[in-house]
Design a protein around this nucleic acid. Sequence first.
DNA 1: CTGGATTGTTTTGTACCATAACAATTGATC
DNA 2: GATCAATTGTTATGGTACAAAACAATCCAG
Lengths: 174, 174
Amino acid sequence: MSTADTASSGIAAKRGRPRHDALSAADVTAIPALEAIVGYRLRRAQLYVFQDFIDSFARMKLRPAEFSVLSVMARRPGLKQTEIAEELGIKRANFVALMDGLEARGLAERRKADTDKRSHSLHLTPDGVKFVRKMMEVWNEHEKRLVDKLGGAEERDRLIQLLDRIVAPDSAPR
Amino acid sequence: MSTADTASSGIAAKRGRPRHDALSAADVTAIPALEAIVGYRLRRAQLYVFQDFIDSFARMKLRPAEFSVLSVMARRPGLKQTEIAEELGIKRANFVALMDGLEARGLAERRKADTDKRSHSLHLTPDGVKFVRKMMEVWNEHEKRLVDKLGGAEERDRLIQLLDRIVAPDSAPR
DNA sequence: CTGGATTGTTTTGTACCATAACAATTGATC
DNA sequence: GATCAATTGTTATGGTACAAAACAATCCAG
């Protein structure tokens, strides 16, 4: 915000030679500042939130993707790999290593599904349940920090509602 | 939304054996659905927007980072690499290859700054100016699509205002 | 003039993501 | 009941993004 006020002036004029390379003043107005571009702002905000998330969970050695998988397993145990992967937008090929890691740490396990010998049903271990409890405590602090910045729970709801519209299947919000 | 309605029931009960692995009902309520987590929703929305962006610019062979660099050079020619990189959150080490690509395509150039022989001042070439014009046409369509989904320009402004609060230096919004 | 900082650069390692191919298994069809 | 297409988990591989460390050239302060 601070450095993006006016067009090419000040610093730029001191350096190089702004002869015929800049767009004319009329053209510049047609170029939106990045600050006004939704995708750019979304990315910066997402990076900020993820950085806080990553810092918060550094001690637990937990990455965002692992958090999401544990979270789904806690609420809906028994799903198979493809189901969780697809729901989270993870390719099932990449899900394997992720699940391997959770299993190696003793947090989750693959059980052979008796109805379909191909698939595994995914569950938390008792240790995994304990871990998830700690995880949610840490997450609460992280989320509280975020909601405070937003200005309250109502603002968070407004934000989520807007994000909903973006990712909604078709247009026609409401 | 469709698959995340209730807790562990239906499908999960059919598969595996939900004995003592699921958290108790009381615990489950303490676990928020991913749909209610700001960071998760932000990421999904950002991925959606970027996918539309990437598709829109596939023909021009332009990536988001390149778009942002060209955009800054158009509005404020003459900045040096470190300045643009830092403003966009790009490590200056990674900026080199990015700028190399733009220069190889004849869209931008590094000029030796006469005041400081270490730094380069960055500018669009005439071809780069033409390219940016086309770029902005394509971007306009992309952004319009997005604003339509949001429900109008006012909604976009509300969204950006909320994102602002997240990334703002300290808390205390307004 | 000398030492510390800055600028651009190269190199390197890591995480993330997508695609293709594969064996085992399932299920539908004849 | 044999056959064939589809599904599931898996491995291997390539590409892209991102971060850290080190370096030469240059600037600048004392």
